[in-house]
Design a protein around this nucleic acid. Structure first.
Length: 219
DNA sequence: GACCAGGCACATC
DNA sequence: GATGTGCATGGT
């Protein structure tokens, strides 16, 4: 069997193990697509528990819509999202996104979403503050496009299983998954969510992942 | 009190 | 192209 085929079987098998072990994760935890996008920016290098507090503050202030967030001052946003950390940087990034949305798509996520996926990706990446992971999170969880999300957990877990180096580049790792797996947003949705679940519960501070419930290759 | 968390942009070489 | 640094809160 060639390597590509073997990897495909392994990745599917790992998904099956994770799904059997944890069950459906029901991602992304948000009420609206716009809330997904706000959460994706706020969770950059930040624990989700902190993001939840910031989202709650925005929700109470009724700022979880493109129009309301565009009308709010950066200072106001910064104050509300303080629990999520990097509040000066992130308030600017939120403003960058809504300004982009209104400037080019009349503030409409539907209009934005009507682009082809590759065009969407290019557009989102052009916004200052939206890097590859945030971009793919928005594509997959807010706009329901098939884009596999790579995060620190994904690199840590799968490099330990010997698929690539831990410091491999984002696009390299993303291509690895997307070339081996069928182009399916529901699969990508569940897979990434399961990886994060596994990372949070098993791979934090465990050097070799010895009790990993999905371990497939012994390295 | 160190270390980490669902990154990213920017400066510098 | 690769490497280093600032950004900041709250939990372990």
């Amino acid at each position: 069997m060639n390597t590509a085929k073997a990897n495909k079987n392994i990745l599917i098998d790992m998904f099956d193990r994770l799904y059997s072990f944890y069950g459906p994760q029901d991602w992304w935890p948000a009420e609206t697509p716009f809330e997904v996008i706000v959460g994706a920016i706020l969770t950059q290098n930040t624990a989700w528990a902190n993001v939840e507090k910031a989202i709650m503050n925005l929700k109470k202030a009724d700022l979880l819509s493109p129009r309301a967030l565009k009308a709010a001052s950066q200072k106001t946003i910064a104050r509300l999202i303080k629990p999520a950390g990097y509040y000066n940087v992130k308030s600017k990034r939120l403003k960058n996104f809504v300004n982009f949305l209104f400037l080019k798509y009349r503030g409409s996520l539907s209009k934005l979403s009507s682009l082809k996926t590759w065009e969407l990706r290019k557009e989102l990446l052009s916004v200052n503050g939206i890097g590859p992971e945030t971009c793919d999170s928005v594509l997959l969880y807010a706009l329901e496009k098939p884009a596999f999300v790579i995060d620190a957990y994904t690199k840590r877990i799968f490099s330990r299983h010997g698929f690539f180096e831990e410091d491999a580049g984002y696009e390299e790792v993303r291509n690895f998954f997307m070339e081996q797996l069928p182009l399916n947003k529901d699969l990508y949705n569940e897979y990434h969510a399961l990886i994060v679940r596994l990372g949070k519960e098993h791979c934090r501070k465990i050097p070799k992942c010895k009790d990993c419930p999905i371990i497939y290759l012994k390295k």
